[in-house]
Amino acid sequence: MAVASRRVLPGFSLSLGITLAYLSLLVLLPLSAAFIKAAGLSGQQIVDTVWSDRARAAYWLTFGASFIAALANAAIGFLLAWVLVRYPFPGRKFLDSLIDLPFALPTAVAGLVYSSLYAKNGWLGQFLEPIGIQGAFSRLGIVLVLIFTGLPFVVRTLQPVLENLDAEFEEAAGSLGASRWQTFRYVLLPCLTPPLLTGFALAFARALGEYGSVIFIAGNMPYRTEIAPVLIVGRLEEFAYAEATALAVVLLLFSFVLLGVINLLQRWSQSYGN
């Protein structure tokens, strides 16, 4: 625990000084540029940029695809965490280490290989093609690769909570005549909801900003498969800084709101744990 040891331990001013200087120069100052630039735009300019048909389609796709991917992450992540914590089976440890691969694998590699897997003649695309599903260069492709990049979040927030659940709750429920399903639904699920929501929010936040993996598989067609970050980059490449900034600030504000929500959720999770 942090202690009021300021007068005893050395290095307070030095370490806090380095921290604040580095944080300000590398993160806060650069980010403030977006707001300074946005403040210089007229309200009409911002509305024209942010509320254009193309921008609305991009935001809608970004939020929609991220939301669906995060939902899928919640379901798959719950399953994985449950199986990894509760059931012994050969290869369990190996599977457990593999969960973090999406964190370690560069997003460009993920996008490249997913677009190739789900292309018409790809390993998985060849099975989807005959039933009329287009995996790569479609909205489905965006969701698929976002599921990959967000996979570890739910698993890693649920795992420690599942491991520390007191066996007595379940035993008590069982001895009082609850079925296994009832125990799960009314005893376990309420305890697991806060971490599940935290993991969901983390995966959602990650998916919203994702760029590297999506551009490979999306096809990036305006109105159809163009996500908001791609639109921002497009504007930047035309040196339309003002428009790019207006688009970015919306995304940035949403990230801040989500960061606040995640903080609240984490506090809720911890109070539940005690």
Partner: peptide, 11 residues
């Protein structure tokens, strides 16, 4: 962590 890399680049 919660800022899109693209927005970071833009900054």
């Amino acid at each position: 962590f919660s800022v899109s890399p693209v927005v970071a680049g833009l900054a």
